[in-house]
Structure formats: structure tokens, C-alpha cells
Design a protein around this nucleic acid. Structure first.
Lengths: 193, 193
DNA sequence: TAAATGATAGAACGATCTTTCTCTTTTTGC
DNA sequence: GCAAAAAGAGAAAGATCGTTCTATCATTTA
């Protein structure tokens, strides 16, 4: 048994593939990036690729899993930073804005992936749906904790606003969208202007 | 000169190609649809395709041109239906909602296209940018006519909301998004709740 | 009627796509 | 040290990608 492991316990080749593919898929689109590009930039051979991922779509789903885990981690870290529900909401909105401004300047990975995968029961679209359901549910719980008068409606508004911020930040520039997003989000969350 | 013309004066083969490609590009994505599919379903040969469109990207840009023209027509028709600025805004918001509910159930053609075309100076992205600039400008003029206190900010909010409605309608279902969209849009436009 | 041009037909180009294969080398667990 | 398994190397499959080509047919304008 010779699996070249890293500190986290998974294969180093697998992690390199996943990191390279995530970067390329996000920056250039999924159908636009071929397996050759991925294995070339990852410095890995085709055989190694297909040993870790039975097909390209498995890699795509793993990429969305990474994005999902990253956001969940950010939420967890915000939850550890404070116990005050109102302040937590502030941190979350601030974190979302910061994320669009610095990391996700090419739009939302899930929205972009969904644009390329029309079939609602495909693995990719299921992953998108699960992420969005988690996001909506988490916001609703946060808002409930903060004493929102209608957490379901407010969570729906925040989901709406984050979608718009991701799209608008990509296509119109973040400076143009930021004030409208922050203002509307704080209002939806019931925070002071 | 034997160009087989239609009532509008353009080639029937070209119109069939454009209609077929528009349908396929929107429903399945652009990179996912090959030239073979398009000419097959349009009942046209490869040579005819390349006579009317020097490359596939020209067809993609023409597809976005059709989408753009369709929306502009809808705005024009709304403008002819009433002279009252407030009522015109109501018609526009209603029209946008109706559009998402019935026609654009697979998201926004421009947002989806941008997801597949990362290069900002590509012809596709330029077309997307021009459409969005027109949309924003038109809303701003409408809001100015309706006596909005800050037409620029309000137009930005409506652009944001339409993006969100398109994405949310596709991924979460329109019923879930509709109340939030209509409510927020009417508020942004300064209309009675 | 004759020249011009669009449309049809179909083969073929090279490139790239995802996937599978064989063979050797390297690393690890016992 | 030995057996097991992962990684490296590279060829090659078959399909599809966008594109170009040479024909012939049909239609319209001069």
C-alpha cells in the first residue's frame, strides 16, 4: 500500500489535481477546460487522473465540494468569532462582500456550473441544489437566532442578494454593486443602516 | 443573386439556423452544442452555415443579438401602451416577472453566456456588456421620468434584482423568488406596495 | 438566355475531446 | 527485503470539435 499521503491524509496527486482543476474550472469554465490541460498543469499523468476520478464529472463534483466546504468553513469561523447573533449576521454579510470582492471575481462557481449543466438531475446540479439549500437554511437559522420577524422571507432575500452580488460583481464591477448589496442585505437582516 | 428571402428580407436558411441555435444555446449551453447538432436540427448543410456565419462565435453573438432585440421590443411595446411613467414602471416590472416565469426558465442568456466566456474583451462579453449597459440606462431614464429621487441608485437596484430573479428562478424555482422580487422591485422603483 | 450567387451534398481536414490500455518505476506496509 | 499499490510514461482508442473543400443544383437578376 503506497498511497503518497499529505498532512490531511489524502493523496498528494489527488490534491494537486483538485486544486489545479478548481482554479481552471472557475477561471475558464468547465467545458472549456480539458483533461489534458488539467493533468498538464497538475504535473500528473492520465492514468493517475483516472485512478482518483473515474470520470471528469467526478472531478467537477469534487471541485464544487471544495467550494462548498470553503464557504462552510468561513461560516464556522464566523460562528466561533462571536456569540452575539446580530454581530454574527454583520460578520456574515461582511464576509460575503469580501468574498465577492477578492476571491470570487468571476461570479459564483455554482451559478456558473449550473449554466453549463442543464439537466436538473445531474450530479453537478444536485450538488448545486444541496449547496443552495444549506446556504438558505443556515441563513434562516442565523436570522431566527437574531430574532428576525420572518426568518424565511429574510433568508430568501439574502440568497437573492448574494446571487445578484456575485453576478453583478463579475459583469458590472464590484464597486458598482457593493453599496446596493451591503445596504439591502443589512436591511433584509434587520440591522441598523 | 439568388438569396431565398423571407417576409423580413433576410435569408430563410439564416433565420432557421439562428432560431435553432438560439433554442439550443439557451437550453443546453453554448459549448455543449456543436455545429453538427445545429445544422442537423435546422435542416441545413455545413456550407450554408459557414456562408452565413464565418464562425460559430458569430452565431453566438447573433443569438445574443436576438435576445437583446426581443427585450428591447418588449420595452418599446410597454412604452406604447401607456404614457404615465409610474404605470410604465409597473408594466416593466410585471413584464420582467412574466418573462422569468414563462420564457427564461433556464436563467439569463447573458449571464449564462458570460459564465462560458471568461475573456472580458471577447465579442460575446462585449455583447453582454452592451446589453447590460442599455438595460441599466433604460431603467434609469424610466425612473427619471417617474420622478425617482435617485434614478441611478434605483436603476442599479433593479438590475441587481433582475439578475437575482433570473438565477433564483432557474435554480430555486420561480414561486420561491417571485414575492421577494416583485416586492423589492416595486419598493426600489418607488411604487405603492 | 446567360452570368451570378445562394443552397445542397458530402468528403475530409487537423485538433481536441474523454477514456482505456500496457509497461515500468517508485514508494510504502509488513 | 518483499509484496502491494500508487504514480509515471506514453501510445492509442473512438468520438466529436470547428472548419474547409470541391463539387452540383436551383434560383434570380442583368
Amino acid at each position: 500500500m503506497a498511497i503518497r499521503t499529505t498532512a490531511t491524509g489524502t493523496s498528494v496527486a489527488r490534491e494537486k489535481l483538485l486544486a489545479t482543476a478548481s482554479e481552471l474550472f472557475y477561471r475558464e469554465g468547465i467545458h472549456a477546460v480539458g483533461v489534458d490541460r488539467i493533468i498538464g498543469e497538475a504535473g500528473v499523468t492520465r492514468a493517475t487522473f483516472y485512478r482518483h476520478f473515474p470520470s471528469k464529472e467526478d472531478l467537477v463534483e469534487a471541485y464544487l465540494g471544495v467550494e462548498d466546504a470553503t464557504i462552510r468553513d468561513a461560516f464556522d469561523r464566523a460562528g466561533e468569532a462571536t456569540d452575539d447573533p446580530g454581530q454574527l449576521l454583520e460578520l456574515v454579510i461582511e464576509g460575503l462582500a469580501d468574498d465577492v470582492a477578492r476571491l470570487h471575481t468571476r461570479g459564483c462557481p455554482f451559478i456558473n456550473a449550473a449554466a453549463e449543466y442543464p439537466e436538473a438531475d445531474s450530479g453537478v446540479r444536485v450538488a448545486v441544489g444541496e449547496h443552495r439549500a444549506w446556504f438558505r437554511g443556515t441563513l434562516e437559522a442565523l436570522l431566527t437566532g437574531a430574532g428576525s420577524s420572518d426568518p424565511e422571507v429574510a433568508a430568501g432575500q439574502l440568497v437573492l442578494l448574494r446571487d445578484a452580488a456575485m453576478v453583478g460583481g463579475y459583469l458590472d464591477g464590484w464597486e458598482r454593486v457593493r453599496p446596493a448589496f451591503v445596504g439591502a442585505a443589512r436591511q433584509a437582516a434587520g440591522l441598523a443602516a
